[in-house]
Design a protein around this nucleic acid. Structure first.
Lengths: 223, 223
DNA sequence: GGTCCAACATACCAACTGGTATGTAATACG
DNA sequence: CGTATTACATACCAGTTGGTATGTTGGACC
């Protein structure tokens, strides 16, 4: 047990590690992994090089941890979290997710894009272990979408002649591409437009009009 | 006038410049702009630092030229060239483009992704002049698609209630996202699957089979 | 054929880079 | 309490980076 209250302890390894992760994330998010300066990370974290190399064997290990812990959590809360909260048919749920994502969009998301995609594009050809972690995170994302789609297929609200995995993969790709284009153009409008188009396209997942019952629900609901 | 035949001349500034551009492109394509080593570029080009700094004021200028000349040409020939060659309605033309792109796909395109997107993701937040050039190239791409779509709309083979610009932008985003995902996963299968899905989705651009007059699409926004 | 400039080549450098070796204080533990 | 170990801090280093200063030569032009 700690003798002092935790807030007064002068050594809190887990807090230090977390500070390093957050500072590392910020720096890597902005400059890329190769461009990220360790000294800038240490500055931001308010610790010295000794602390960093105590918690991580090298720069790459810090990057790996940023993917596995920081970025992964971000993905879960930003995309999959709100998705599971939505009830009803998958199309509505996915549309709601896109809508909410747009509503809660932070400025730096347009300026800096998707941190996961950034790292994947930069490091995939250069570091296989980096690539594996990024790919695994994308896989989590895709599988999250695929589950929702499959559920909709068993439920009857999604056409059964479509491959849920392929669809989910395409959705992730379309989202990432939209963020990427918006980033290069520095244009929130492009992101909005693209995600709206994607949302509209989702309607095609419903069984065709003729076979569908008259439960034509527009996503008219307001939050 | 040259006294010798051009192939025997020992000084061909335009050739040297082109060698630098090509070597620069390769290195930047693989390692990113920040990660690209000038010495590696010089090695590949078979010239020395003096030559490089004679033709370009600094590293950034070489990168700019790579975007404006090498990558732009690649875009025109790989995407817009085959598109204009295709006749008939836009949907068929775009599908043909995707198909041909998949058929002529080179292995490193999956490994390294799209060079334009790579640079955009890496450099947009770091160098405004880089970003502008990348954005301008994306704009050329988008506008190429948009023209084809507009042509189809006047011709009647594409629904007129859709915004051709927004659609074109989405197409580019979906393509880029597909390359990006395939790169992180190192999976040609993902690229194939995604571009196939995209090709299928293009069918939705045709006027509805039943020619329903209910233009209840909500893609009408007024920016 | 002499002159001048473009077109390079060579050598060198200051600034950072990630990484390490060593020192030291806090804290868990017996 | 004593002690071992964790959790850092400081100082330093070798390698690499983009960039430059200077030297040299091919070739167009007069």
């Amino acid at each position: 047990m700690a003798k002092r209250s935790p807030s007064r302890r002068r050594r809190q390894p887990d807090v230090t590690r977390e500070r390093l992760l957050q500072a590392g994330f910020k720096e890597i998010y902005r400059r890329g992994f190769q461009g990220a300066s360790l000294e800038a990370i240490l500055d931001q974290a308010g610790v010295t090089k000794g602390a960093l190399y105590h918690h991580f064997p090298d720069k790459a290990a810090l990057g790996y941890a940023v993917v596995d812990e920081v970025i992964r959590d971000l993905l879960l809360q930003r995309w999959l979290g709100v998705l599971q909260a939505e009830a009803g048919d998958p199309v509505t749920a996915l549309q709601g997710m896109l809508k909410q994502r747009l509503a809660q969009l932070q400025p730096h998301e347009v300026e800096l894009g998707c941190p996961l995609n950034n790292l994947g594009q930069e490091m995939s050809p250069l570091d296989e272990r980096f690539r594996r972690r990024v790919a695994a995170t994308f896989e989590t994302w895709t599988e999250g979408f695929a589950q929702v789609l499959r559920h909709g297929q068993t439920e009857g609200s999604v056409r059964k002649d479509l491959d849920s995995r392929k669809l989910a993969t395409f959705l992730v790709a379309a989202i990432e591409g939209s963020f990427g284009l918006a980033k290069s153009a520095q244009s929130p409008a492009i992101l909005h437009s693209n995600l709206e188009v994607l949302g509209t396209l989702l309607e095609c997942l419903h069984p065709s009009d003729r076979m569908r019952k008259k439960t034509r629900r527009r996503s008219r609901r307001n939050p």
